[in-house]
Design a protein around this nucleic acid. Structure first.
Lengths: 192, 192
DNA sequence: TGACAAACGGACTGTCGGTCCGTATCATGA
DNA sequence: TCATGATACGGACCGACAGTCCGTTTGTCA
């Protein structure tokens, strides 16, 4: 890894922060343009694209920051999220925790899942693949292998950003309403 | 309803057919532009927009044509899709039938659900609201009212166009694999 | 401090959804 | 059949946006 020049580091930080804030305050992710982000970060557009390549990747970087603590917990934290946790409870805890992150970062998540790009690659993104694989493996011992994969997809489908957003804004559910319905649903899904 | 002039009728038909075909043959819905459609239909762009208002609505009209037979079956057809069918089987049949339509019209469905527009309004679309309401009512007697709504969302989340597309293209599942996994899943979801 | 690599920034490009308006076509009734 | 008004046509045009290019500035290090 090469050393990063001081101005480059400063700008990268400014861009990430500006992006985060702009999405958080926007009504819809589509109304935040790359020009907006560049202006808010006090940076030229060229800098933005040189650093992050394209819009999707920029959003993904911001998201990675937000997700880091959860990832840490899941990978090496204590129960119920960590590896020592019994599979059932771990699955349930992971789904709940992801839902919380998505509820707290609704606009950002929508920007990412909503697929601004032409290719819809949510299911091919490394994050999705990783969490799907983990969930699948956790339920594989109780259900068949192929059944486990389906269940993992299904659980994740229940916490898609746009669905959560609709439940909040369209049906007026509170975060705790959603979490408790979700908990029931996951429990039922994992029952035989 | 006003009478439609002969050339207008001819053009509307040409546009709908061209749109259907272009989406069916495209790799990704994003690569079909309104100019492409106008050219393929042998029509000016103005005509396209005068007739259909905007891209989303045009796609929705094409989709409506494809969906009409299923809608007919559900509204007034015989069991298992029609109103006379016992709720459980009806729910299962409806989910299966929708999945089939989506699998057969994958590109079109992706264009519609993928939300080319800035506003993600899948959950507010009349079609979604209608089918969600129907499913909810069908399971409401067995589950609580609010629980029923969640289950309906959940069932529909399992047959989102992009998920189905990924199962086919990314995981190499056949249509019948998917339908049978889905059938099992729905049955389990509706079990107490 | 000088010199060069690295980074900057904003004008520029290509494309797309959607609009506008002068022109062509259809329907009607005399 | 033809005049006439209403309706529809079509493609040049517009504004916005993601992404590129390159002349200019800035940081680094000897």
């Amino acid at each position: 890894m090469e050393e990063e020049r001081a101005d480059a580091a400063r700008n990268r930080k400014a861009i990430l922060e500006a992006t985060d804030e702009l999405f958080a305050n926007s009504d819809s992710p589509g109304e935040v343009s790359m020009d907006d982000i560049a202006r808010a970060a006090g940076v030229g557009k060229g800098t933005l694209f040189r650093r992050f390549g394209d819009r999707r990747n920029l959003i993904q970087q911001v998201y990675a920051v937000r997700l880091a603590p959860l990832r840490e917990q899941i990978e090496k934290g204590p129960a119920p999220l960590g590896p020592a946790s019994p599979p059932r409870e771990r699955v349930s805890a992971i789904i709940d925790a992801i839902a919380v992150v998505k509820l707290e970062n609704a606009h950002l998540m929508l920007a990412l899942e909503g697929g601004s790009g032409p290719t819809n690659d949510l299911y091919e993104s490394t994050d999705y693949v990783a969490v799907h694989g983990l969930l699948r493996d956790l339920v594989a011992s109780e259900f068949g292998k192929s059944r486990a994969s389906w269940i993992a997809h299904s659980l994740l489908a229940n916490i898609r950003a746009d669905l959560l957003g609709y439940l909040v804004n369209g049906e007026g559910m509170s975060h705790s309403d959603i979490r408790s319905s979700l908990r029931d649903f996951v429990a039922h899904t994992l029952d035989h």
